[in-house]
Amino acid sequence: MAPSARLVDESLDWYNRYARHITLDEVGESGQQVLGDTRVLIIGVGGLGSPVALYLAAAGVGTLGLVDDDLVSLNNLQRQILHGTSDVGRPKVDSALEALKHINPQVNIVTHQYRVTPRNVWELINEYDLVVDGSDNFATRFLINDVCVQAKKPLIFGAVLQFSGQVTAFTQEADSGCYRCLFPEAPDPRYATTCVEAGIFGVTTGIIGSLQAAEALKVILNDSGHQIGPTLKNRLLMYDGKDSSFRTIKLSKNPNCPVCSIPGFDFRKVTYVDNCAVGSPANEVAKLA
């Protein structure tokens, strides 16, 4: 095929693939192009990261970074819909890459098969425009929050336990609160409950992850002048699957928050120790220095 004919075909494919977005007044062709120029980092490609990655890939986000050091286990498959039975034992980022390329080969997928740590997180997050938190422990969540505040990267937070979920958007605008405004420090490990101990109604991750994907797209589009509508900035949306209810709680920016309100915060001075994750010994918590 001649190069010009191929370009015409690719262009038609692009319009056809994203036709239902482009038809929306709030998105349009320019909004779709913005999505294609955006780089999103998804930390954790498990229960939450699966629907987030699937929807963002389908939506045509240009680059998706996937961070996860874990391998697919059989007990993941009840909720981690990026992975299949034949993927058991494989790195999650590899099976995720395959699934996402199947959905949308136009998306650039970058895999990072390691755990996010204070040593690697700054460089990693600064390669992207927006971060989605799909991690599974408090230490990582506080680390991601603190670095996103410092790097001024919008962060879409989501978490689940049993039949419950929480989601919000920390946009890093001057009036935006952060995770530490909501919960200043990680729980004492004696009281922290993990999904391993407590269980998780699988579809809860799909509901919360889909909401995270929606918030990510809205933040990206709003920031580029495509006014979709208010995000969950300064609101915590809570879902209860037992009675199929949603509630929102006002999330006030804490004027004394040492991370997002008091100048001079540096995440490198904070101790982040994983006290709640699977198989980790309980010891220190993520404490501010």
Partner: peptide
């Protein structure tokens, strides 16, 4: 009065 808990599962 509303009471909530931090959760971290993913």
């Amino acid at each position: 009065v509303t009471v909530i808990s931090a959760i971290a599962g993913g």
